[in-house]
Each structure stands twice: as structure tokens, then as C-alpha cells.
């Protein structure tokens, strides 16, 4: 057994769990959502084992490092963060319907890591710039934040589905979703959590940059986009705290904020890097 088998099983597990969560929502079947939760938990354990094993395997290969060093490993860790964040949320708020809006994100991340072109799954040694203890602190804090924002986005979509003009849909499929007031409160709490971790992630990145390159901030596209994301959520929190924005507007901001997260994560690597290499060649 090796780590890539475990990670492959996890991808399937999250696909199945996503289908079960969505099925439970559509058919209003409580037992199905319980099965979905158990499957998610089991898959999470397999995934954790897979990440741990990959870590161990890198030591076996003679250049051990935490499996957080490239796009593939970060996508896997992103899925892991989303799932643990979701499981805590489910446990705390005793609501399994949220799973239909959170676990699919984890599946997409795993599937993208496994099947997308140009994503190298090999365990590779660390280049000199990445050989630092800040790697773990920086990547983990950022991804806990990203995971919270992914769930906030899922909740935002849920809110907009439930909302019917100025009223709340109480009938049909959508009627089974939690009350708007509860979703709204959850979006807010999730964004606060994500904002805290994004701040820690940016700060650990700055400290790391200063110890590796002698500058804590250099306005490179990745840094700048993480700051743009921070501005978007800072504005969201101010709008809510001081201008009393709630509901639809905050739900949209949760979605816009996540678009910015995704751009920070992928866009900078693929799109802007492309522009830059075009520009310089």
C-alpha cells in the first residue's frame, strides 16, 4: 500500500459522500445524510493516513519534508482542510445539509489534483528556497483560511437558493435548508474564522520571505492577490459590523471573496505566470 492509493481512495470517497449529501438533500432522507457523514469521516481518516504516508515516504526517499511543497500536495491539503473544517461545523451546529455545499469542494480539489494536466504527483525534494520550518506554518495557516472561505462560499450559495425575492422559501426541496437567519450567522462566523487564518497566513509568509529573501513584502502577484482577498473580506466584515449588512449582500460577498481566493491560489500560478512569461520572452 502506498500513499497515492490512499489518496485515490479518498477521491472516490469524497465523490460518493458528495452524491450522498446531495441525494439526502433532494430526497430528504435523514439516514442517507448520516451515511454520508460516516463516509466523509472515514474518507477523512484515509486521506489523513495518505498524507501521513506520503510524508513518511519522502523520508524513505532520503529528503523528508512535509507534503505541502507543490500544487498537487497543496490541493490534497486544501481538500483535507475543507473536510476537517466542515466536520467540526457539522458537529458543532448539528446540521448535515451543509455537507451538500461543502464536501463537493473537497472532491473537486482532489479530482483536480489527480486528473488535471500539468500537475506533477511525484514526491520531489525541496528546492533551497522552500527548505524552512516556515513552510508548514505558512501553508497550513493559509489553507485553513482558504477552507473556511470555501465553506462560506458554499453557505452563500445555499443562502441565495433559499432566498425567494424578499421572502424565504419554505416549501419544496429548498425548504429543507436551514433558516436564512441561521445560514447568515454561519456565513459571518465562517468568514471571521477564515479572515483570522488568512491574516496569520499572510504574516507567516511575510516573516518567511524576510528570512529567505530579506524583504517581508515585495508586491509580487501572489502576495498582492492574497492582500486583495484580505481587503475583500475586511470590507465584508466592516459592512456587516458597522453598516449592518446581512443576508443577500453578505452571501454575494462570500462568493466574490472565494473567487478572489481561487484566483490567489490558481490564477496567479497559471494565468499571471503565463502573462509574465509571455511578457519576458
Amino acid at each position: 500500500m502506498n500513499s497515492s492509493q490512499l489518496l485515490g481512495v479518498s477521491t472516490l470517497g469524497f465523490l460518493l459522500a458528495s452524491m450522498l449529501y446531495i441525494g439526502a438533500l433532494i430526497f430528504r432522507a435523514k439516514t442517507v445524510s448520516l451515511v454520508a457523514s460516516i463516509l466523509t469521516l472515514l474518507t477523512f481518516l484515509v486521506l489523513t493516513g495518505g498524507i501521513g504516508l506520503r510524508w513518511y515516504e519522502s523520508y524513505q526517499m532520503g529528503f523528508g519534508h512535509a507534503p505541502l511543497s507543490n500544487m498537487y500536495e497543496s490541493l490534497v491539503f486544501f481538500a483535507w482542510s475543507i473536510v476537517i473544517f466542515y466536520l467540526v461545523l457539522e458537529f458543532k451546529f448539528k446540521n448535515r445539509i451543509l455537507g451538500a455545499f461543502a464536501i463537493p469542494f473537497a472532491f473537486v480539489s482532489m479530482a483536480y489534483a489527480s486528473f488535471a494536466k500539468g500537475i506533477n504527483q511525484e514526491i520531489a525534494p525541496l528546492i533551497p528556497a522552500l527548505q524552512s520550518n516556515w513552510l508548514i506554518a505558512h501553508v497550513m495557516t493559509c489553507f485553513i483560511g482558504y477552507a473556511a472561505f470555501a465553506v462560506a462560499c458554499g453557505l452563500g450559495i445555499m443562502y441565495l437558493l433559499k432566498r425567494d425575492g424578499k421572502k424565504e422559501k419554505t416549501t419544496g426541496l429548498i425548504g429543507t435548508l436551514p433558516a436564512l437567519k441561521i445560514i447568515d450567522d454561519l456565513i459571518h462566523k465562517t468568514i471571521i474564522f477564515g479572515f483570522l487564518w488568512l491574516s496569520v497566513g499572510i504574516i507567516t509568509g511575510a516573516i518567511w520571505a524576510n528570512s529567505a529573501w530579506g524583504t517581508y513584502w515585495s508586491w509580487d502577484p501572489k502576495e498582492t492577490w492574497s492582500l486583495i482577498t484580505w481587503f475583500v473580506y475586511a470590507a465584508t466584515l466592516h459592512a456587516r459590523f458597522t453598516r449592518g449588512w446581512t443576508g443577500k449582500r453578505i452571501a454575494w460577498l462570500a462568493i466574490i471573496g472565494f473567487v478572489s481566493v481561487i484566483f490567489t491560489y490558481f490564477g496567479v500560478n497559471f494565468l499571471l505566470a503565463g502573462l509574465h512569461s509571455y511578457g519576458s520572452s
Partner: peptide
């Protein structure tokens, strides 16, 4: 005013994009 805060944060977010697209 917090309206000013929202305006400035929004402008900073939008304008910061320029420097990530146009090489500096």
C-alpha cells in the same frame, strides 16, 4: 465614516490588480 473605509478598501482591492497584470 465607515463609508470611506469601504470605499478605500474597495479601491485598494481593485487597483492592486493592475500591478499583478502589468509587470512592475
Amino acid at each position: 465614516s465607515v463609508k470611506l473605509t469601504l470605499f478605500v478598501l474597495f479601491m485598494l482591492a481593485i487597483l492592486s490588480i493592475i500591478g499583478t497584470v502589468v509587470p512592475q
